[in-house]
Nucleic acid binder design. Structure first.
Lengths: 216, 216
DNA sequence: CCTACCGATCGGTAGG
DNA sequence: CCTACCGATCGGTAGG
């Protein structure tokens, strides 16, 4: 039970990261004051600035944290994807789980993409570039084998499917309004989320795979 | 050639709306000061506040302007959609043209949806609700007639297609990074936009319509 | 449409 | 991790 004085006991830095993630996702970077973050964690603003010397650095840390958590899942994705038969379901399910676990992630990515497209592109380029190539190559192999529709534009298709997943989780509250006018309880909301996710999967698969009845 | 002193000659109010639209789309509402808007139009901050008494009211005006411009196109959409055979292409083409004309519109809507989901839902509910019903009804008719896949969830499908269009135009710069590492010139960008739009149309149609060869 | 000005809040620093 | 404090900027008002 021995642990150093500065570890875990309160873990202020971790709490700052979590609160910052939520508030940045909620109100945006410009709309969130470091004061508000510090307050919610229960410390003062200069104390926050001891852990993260500037607001920019805090932003970087939040995004880095998000990317790291995603990358921590990749080995599992790869294992399931290469081992099992259903590569599509494995990758898609893992991605959906990542955002369902914390929808703030989807809103944060969407905000960052709109707020700073160039920086986001550079940040993602090196980190997820290899994965993009892996998936688009797999699609092309599927096209050679006749399992994937020849008309599919692999890069464009992948971008749009990623957009569907992120956008659906980011704007779930808004989309609920299209289904009904009244506010929904937790159960109703979960059911709608399920309907939307099912439809995304259907759209992605139908537009990707050659149907079994009409193999060329 | 006679016009009153206070109309058109400078049209400060209209210029304020245009600049505010661009800056809100660019940097977000919280990230844009009314000072910056006034400066770009060439007037002072109190002068802006003469035309729009508060920042909130300016925001409302910008969104109202966007919705009004969209609604002004609806008669044309309806006319083409009911007259011609290809309802899908008519509606889809009109929507895409609206955002291609000014991609700020897509970014603005996306931002508003993430910033204030509840208010956005209420604002859109009454205004586009009838149109949603019109389109989902049309899908259901198509399902009865066997032209549209029975598995389609009309509301969910529509939401996702709208998300695809808005998201694609809003994040076009970002998406370009997935295709290539180097920066693109105007021509290259236009070609990518075309590829992505083609793929969206393909995805939407393939997932909606029953293929001709396998009519049930 | 402008000058002059307001209180509040912003991100950040000094110094402990 | 805190108290005390900084200059700059925020949205907005008074008064013309």
């Amino acid at each position: 039970m021995s642990h150093g004085q500065r570890e875990e006991v309160s873990d202020v830095k971790g709490r700052l990261l979590r609160v910052a993630t939520r508030l940045f996702a909620d109100r945006g970077y410009a709309g969130t004051s470091i004061q508000a973050i510090a307050e919610e964690v229960g410390i003062t603003k200069p104390s926050l600035l001891y852990h993260f010397p500037s607001k920019q650095i805090l932003r970087e840390a939040v995004l880095e944290n998000l990317l790291t958590r995603w990358e921590a899942r990749l080995p599992r994705v790869l294992a399931v994807a290469t081992a099992g038969l259903d590569r599509f379901d494995a990758v898609f399910g893992e991605a959906a789980a990542f955002f369902r676990e914390d929808p703030n992630r989807a809103r944060l990515i969407l905000r960052e993409a709109v707020d700073r497209p160039v920086e986001t592109r550079e940040r993602l380029g090196g980190r997820i570039g290899p994965w993009v190539r892996l998936l688009t190559d797999a699609i092309r192999v599927g096209q050679s084998g006749g399992r994937v529709r020849a008309e599919v534009d692999p890069e464009a298709w992948l971008i749009e499917v990623v957009l569907l997943v992120i956008g659906t989780y980011a704007a779930a509250d808004l989309a609920a309004g299209v289904f009904s006018n009244r506010d929904l309880d937790g159960d109703g909301r979960r059911e709608l989320a399920r309907r939307q996710l099912d439809e995304i999967i259907r759209m992605a698969k139908t537009s990707l795979f050659v149907p079994k009845e009409e193999t060329s």
